[in-house]
């Protein structure tokens, strides 16, 4: 895979669009997934992922082959998403708030499982949205891309100690948000099962 990837990069650098298309094909999932976790909806995630690949294509000559291509690409996507969150002044609501892959299918063999999965996704996105953009990127890279602190530092252009402190602060904030979300869901459930007051 590494050799194949190096070959595609080399060919893409000489202007071979098909070779870069192969790189897009190979990395569309991690890039889209990162953008989705960062931006909370599939519409923005699609746009950000496309833009990230476009920027990677336009700057391929600056890529250092000694570095990991995946880290370089995810670094572009992370920075783009961070900038986009900072520039976004008003939250926009899209009708496709969830990607088609995680919309609960009521005709599926296990609809309850599907619904639970969808609720869990909504919960993840809601607690992630409480974090600052750079902290969110660090958490997403750690949990969904299995990046080490050193790799996160490289991708986000931070020092390792800054990444450590951001991860610490984020994990603390997320745990507190988790407790809060858990309490509110328990209250909601109780209200649903309460008997009428009369």
């Amino acid at each position: 895979m590494r050799e194949q990837e190096a070959l595609w990069i080399e060919k893409a650098r000489t202007g071979d669009d098909h070779a870069f298309g192969c790189l897009v094909d190979a990395y569309q999932r991690p890039v889209f997934s990162l953008c989705y976790r960062m931006l909370e909806n599939s519409h923005d995630a699609e746009d950000a992922a496309q833009e990230s690949f476009l920027r990677a294509y336009q700057n391929l000559k600056k890529y250092d082959p000694d570095r990991s291509y995946a880290t370089w690409l995810l670094s572009i996507a992370s920075h783009y998403c961070i900038d986009r969150i900072r520039k976004k002044r008003l939250p926009l609501v899209y009708t496709d708030a969830l990607p088609p892959e995680i919309v609960p299918d009521r005709h599926a063999p296990e609809p309850e499982k599907e619904i639970r999965k969808s609720e869990q996704e909504a919960l993840i996105q809601s607690i992630l949205s409480e974090l600052k953009p750079t902290d969110r990127a660090a958490i997403v890279l750690q949990y969904w891309h299995d990046y080490s602190e050193v790799e996160i530092a490289e991708a986000l252009g931070l020092t390792v100690s800054a990444v450590k402190s951001r991860l610490y602060r984020s994990r603390q904030a997320l745990a507190k948000a988790w407790i809060k979300a858990d309490n509110s869901s328990v209250t909601k459930e109780r209200r649903q099962h309460e008997s009428p007051a009369f």
């Binding site: 298309g21 569309q28 699609e46 992922a49 496309q50 476009l54 869990q120 993840i124 997320l174 745990a175």
Partner: peptide
């Protein structure tokens, strides 16, 4: 407990794929 539970949910949550035809749309 909350941290452990949250980490479990994060780790169990899969990477999300874009809608089919992403590469064509990029081209």
């Amino acid at each position: 407990g909350a941290l452990m539970e949250m980490e479990k949910v994060f780790n169990d949550s899969p990477a999300i794929s874009p809608a089919p035809g992403f590469t064509q749309r990029w081209q």
